[in-house]
Write a protein that binds this DNA or RNA. Structure first.
Length: 176
DNA sequence: CCCTGATTCGC
DNA sequence: GCGAATCAGG
């Protein structure tokens, strides 16, 4: 099963909603959690409000030695130092709050009843049983209805359409 | 042992 | 680009 626009869109949404990779993989079906993680990284979205894992431990084990069963991996690139923030300025780093869902939406379509032209915007807690999709009519190209498509398709396109982060934040704000 | 994401690399 | 294997952890 490949990564269609719809599946990628769902992946993005669920990932940003804080679902684990394995949960997303189970939701999508036909993929493993490794595939989900790999896709997430490829899409460029990796850092989110992780429930577990205290973000960056700053230093990790260099992990040089490996017994090598038959084909030892070679040429491992040396560790890099991120180091973005220079010193402690006055403003603390704002952590974007990403609470749970809270919206009243049509949301009648389930993962089973979801049709080809139905909006695939997730409604409710995706890890619970009452999870549904928006289900309203979606256009031919997009997996979302008009309203949700605006929210879904803001991030980096193929280089041209540069949408300011403010615009994204504004549209997202209506849902938080 | 269950789980989490991160990374590498052959395909 | 994709994802299994493997890693470091909670």
């Amino acid at each position: 099963m490949g990564w269609t626009d719809e599946r990628v869109a769902i992946l993005k949404k669920l990932w940003l909603d804080g679902l684990s990779a394995s949960q997303i993989a189970k939701q999508l079906g036909g993929v493993t959690r490794n595939a989900v993680i790999g896709k997430v990284h490829r899409l460029g979205l990796s850092g989110r409000a992780t429930p577990s894992q205290p973000a960056r431990p700053a230093f990790k084990a260099p992990r040089p030695p490996r017994p090598a069963p038959s084909q030892p991996m070679i040429a491992r690139r040396p560790v890099e130092q991120p180091q973005t923030q220079t010193t402690a300025s006055h403003a603390p780093v704002p952590v974007a709050p990403r609470p749970v869902f809270r919206m009243e939406e049509p949301g009648s379509a389930t993962v089973l009843t979801l049709g080809a032209h139905m909006c695939k915007w997730p409604i409710g807690d995706p890890s619970s049983d009452n999870f549904t999709f928006c289900g309203r009519r979606s256009d031919e190209g997009t997996p979302y209805c008009l309203e949700h498509a605006r929210i879904a398709y803001q991030p980096q396109q193929s280089g041209k359409k540069k949408t300011g982060p403010n615009e994204l934040a504004r549209s997202l704000r209506r849902y938080i």
